[in-house]
Simulated scan of single mutants.
Amino acid sequence: MTAEANPSPLRLERGRQAAPQVFDHLRERILALDLKPGEVLSRVELMEQFGLSQTPIRDALLRLAEEGLVDIFPQHATMVSPIDLTHARHTQFLRRSIELEVVRTLALAADATVVATLTANLDRQKAMVNTEDYQSFWALDQSFHRAMYEAAGVPDLWRLVRSRSGHLERLRKLHLPTPGKTMRIHSDHSLIVRAIAAGDPDQAQRHLRDHLAGTLGLVDTIRDRYPGYFRD
Rank of each mutant, 00 (worst) to 15 (best):
L100I: 05
A139S: 14
L100K: 05
M148A: 02
H145W: 10
R95K: 10
T105G: 00
R95Y: 10
D133R: 11
Q135L: 12
S81Q: 13
K126V: 11
T119D: 12
S97V: 00
A107N: 10
R146D: 02
M148E: 15
V129Q: 10
L140E: 13
H87C: 10
D84K: 11
D133Y: 07
T91I: 00
V129M: 05
L85I: 12
A88V: 03
H90F: 11
L122R: 07
I83P: 03
L106E: 09
S81A: 15
S136N: 11
L118C: 03
L85R: 03
A139L: 15
W138K: 12
L100T: 08
A127I: 06
I98V: 11
E132K: 11
S136W: 02
V115N: 05
A112S: 15
R95E: 15
A110F: 00
L140H: 04
A147S: 15
D141E: 15
R89H: 09
D111K: 01
A88G: 04
T117M: 07
V103T: 07
R96W: 04
N130T: 09
V102G: 02
R95I: 04
T131H: 02
S136T: 15
H87I: 10
A107Q: 08
S97R: 13
R124T: 13
H145E: 12
P82E: 09
S143D: 14
V114D: 04
W138Y: 08
Q135A: 13
F93E: 15
A109H: 10
D133M: 08
R146Q: 14
D133S: 06
K126N: 07
A120P: 05
Q142C: 09
L100C: 07
A120S: 14
Q135P: 00
L108R: 13
L122N: 12
L106C: 03
I83W: 04
L140T: 07
Y134G: 10
V102F: 01
